[in-house]
């Protein structure tokens, strides 16, 4: 299955930050092992020769996307959609302060 994939703690923490996740203590240690196992597993793909093979992004394979009629619908209304908002005021989402 190829060599064990290595990922440093620094790399892992950077990836976690970019993924907007946090791993600490025991969870970090467990995660590191599982992550390495998964990478080790998927590394078997390196054994396959795929030179010149086109990557397949979708199997939808449709001739063209049919256009839908350009008419006003009653869906996607702000008030209805904001009913499940965590915090909303005056029709706006309330978020933590971004600019000082």
């Amino acid at each position: 299955m190829g060599e064990m994939a290595e990922i440093s703690d620094k790399e892992l923490q950077k990836l976690a930050l970019l993924s907007r996740l946090r791993f600490e203590g025991e969870a970090l240690a467990t995660f590191r092992t599982q992550f390495a196992n998964i990478l080790g597993f998927v590394d078997q793909l390196k054994q396959l020769n795929t030179d010149g093979i086109r990557p397949l992004t979708s199997t939808a394979n449709l001739p063209s996307t049919p256009e839908r009629p350009d008419v006003v619908t009653s869906a996607n209304q702000r008030e209805t959609l904001q009913r499940s908002a965590v915090k909303a005021e005056h029709g706006f989402y309330v978020v933590p302060k971004v600019v000082e």
């Binding site: 998927v42 793909l45 086109r54 397949l56």
Partner: peptide, 24 residues
Amino acid sequence: MVGNYALSSGYYDAYYTKAMQVRT
């Protein structure tokens, strides 16, 4: 985490493109 790793600039071709080729 695995997904973002596979999509990251240094590993995109080695993982993501490769996997899509295998899909073909």
